[in-house]
Simulated scan of single mutants.
Amino acid sequence: MDKTPPPAFHSSQAPEPVGLYPHARRVGNLLFLSGVGPRERGVTEIPGVTLDAAGNISSYDIEAQCHSVFKNVRHILEEAGSAWENLVDVTVFLTNMKADFQTYNRLYAQYFQDCQPCRTTVEVNALPTPIAIELKCIATI
């Protein structure tokens, strides 16, 4: 039995992972993306996030974070040989469903108007970095 793991992919445009994991891993004709947030590669500031002196979120703009997350997902997909239109499943993690779902849902509808993958949206207590949204995606290649 071959114990070689499926090919891992690291994007040159998406934000650096915050742990030991690839941006994506290909298995057959499927591409599994690790969680993708709104951070930008090589930059410490997070789009749409204002931090206080202690590094806690003092305010955030969910719209700016959504645009940045969708851009990062697109970068990973395209660099790995897939495309936005090939998304088949998206899991969305929000840290404040009550405050952010309406804006997120409106923007999601704009980005996914022609491509409608399965979707699950859940609220989580926190994410690994001071962000309000993260996407976990599966696409075909």
Rank of each mutant, 00 (worst) to 15 (best):
K98N: 10
V49K: 02
A132T: 08
R25I: 14
A14V: 01
A24P: 03
R41K: 13
V92N: 02
Q116C: 11
K71A: 14
R41S: 06
H23Q: 05
I133K: 04
L20A: 14
Q13V: 02
A83N: 09
T4R: 11
S82W: 00
V122Q: 15
T129D: 12
L135Q: 08
R39Y: 03
Y104R: 04
T44N: 13
R41N: 11
N56G: 14
E16P: 03
A109V: 08
T120Y: 07
G42I: 04
G48M: 03
F112A: 08
F101E: 04
I46G: 00
D61G: 06
L30D: 09
M1H: 12
S82Q: 05
L51T: 03
T91G: 01
W84P: 00
Y60P: 03
P47R: 03
G42R: 08
K136V: 14
A126I: 09
N96M: 05
G35F: 13
F9V: 00
A53S: 15
T44I: 12
I131N: 00
V90T: 10
F101P: 01
F101R: 11
E85R: 11
G37I: 04
F70C: 07
V90S: 04
V43R: 15
E16G: 01
C115D: 03
A99H: 09
V36H: 01
Q65H: 02
R106D: 14
Y108R: 10
I46D: 03
T129F: 06
Y108N: 11
T91M: 06
E78V: 10
L87C: 00
V122I: 15
V92I: 12
T121L: 07
Y104N: 01
N105E: 15
V122E: 15
Y104M: 04
A80R: 03
F70D: 05
P5V: 12
T129S: 09
E134R: 07
N125M: 12
P15G: 02
S59M: 08
V18Y: 13
T95A: 02
E78A: 06
E45V: 12
V18N: 12
V36C: 09
E78R: 06
D114M: 10
P5H: 11
K98H: 10
A80S: 14
L20S: 12
T4K: 13
L20G: 08
Q110N: 12
R119T: 11
G28S: 08
R106I: 10
C115F: 02
A64L: 14
L135Y: 13
R25F: 10
V90K: 06
I131V: 15
S34V: 02
S11D: 00
F101I: 08
F32K: 06
I62N: 02
I131P: 02
A24M: 00
P128S: 06
E63A: 14
E16A: 11
T91N: 09
R25K: 11
H75S: 14
G35K: 08
E79V: 06
L107F: 01
T44R: 11
E16V: 12
A54E: 15
G48N: 07
D89E: 15
G28V: 07
A8K: 10
R119K: 14
R119V: 15
H23S: 03
S58V: 15
N29V: 07
P47C: 08
R41M: 07
L33T: 02
C66K: 02
L87H: 07
C66H: 05
